[in-house]
Amino acid sequence: MLTLKNSLTHLGRYVQLMGRVVAQPDRMRMFYKQYVTEMFQLGYNSIGIVLIISFFIGAVICLQIKLNIQSPWMPRMVTGYTTREIMLLEFSSSIMCLILAGKVGSNIASELGTMRITQQIDALDIMGVNSANYLILPKIMGLMTIMPILVTFSVAAGILGAYATSFMGTTTVSELTEGFRYQFNQWFFWCGIIKAVVYAFIITSVSAYKGYTVEGGSVEVGKASTDAVVTSSILVLFADIFLTQLLT
């Protein structure tokens, strides 16, 4: 009962905060500047980790599929086909975003939490700046803009990873290529993009809420940053089920 009341209170406050975030920025020039900075900080700086993880996961999926379902009466392109479907449908959007929730979520929550406890947010409010809008909107928009690019990179890196396993003599490049091309449905790619954009919103807005509403000191900032990761990960998983049902 208590937890239900608690989560409803949080939901109410979250919606209220989003109401303040979604407003015309006080000064467009400042918004664009922040927007570009956030795209760089949240998105561009995540490209490395996305590429590395996707490359290895692509390779591992390829090896596992080969090991587990390849048999003499199964066409040899099945490995490539299955790898592509897993990357497109789940890994590059959902699992990738879960990993990013850890990186981006804690980053946002601790940044905003520190600004809160050192009164930098109060200072913005006193100046008559809509601090929620100035600080949070560029983060949300920034990650939502860059996320489709990250997903595309992830798919590409995963496929490269799968090709890399062909040097270990398991499947040949041509078999893989055949599998990658087999019955390709473009809509699945767009599903991944749509999902990722929704997750980007969840991760940034939930983490921003956790950070922006910190009260207390450094311990609370640390707690907010953990909470941000946990909460946004769970919400991403819920949204995954919902969106998968809706889109496919």
């Binding site: 050192t118 009164q119 200072a123 100046m127 008559g128």
Partner: peptide
């Protein structure tokens, strides 16, 4: 129409001194 100086100064730590002072001007 208000200016406030906080007990701990509350400067924006991601900006330089000049950017801090320019911030309200840039905004308004």
């Amino acid at each position: 129409e208000m200016g406030m100086i906080f007990q701990n100064a509350a400067l924006f730590d991601s900006m330089t001194v000049l950017e801090n002072v320019m911030f309200p001007l840039n905004m308004f």
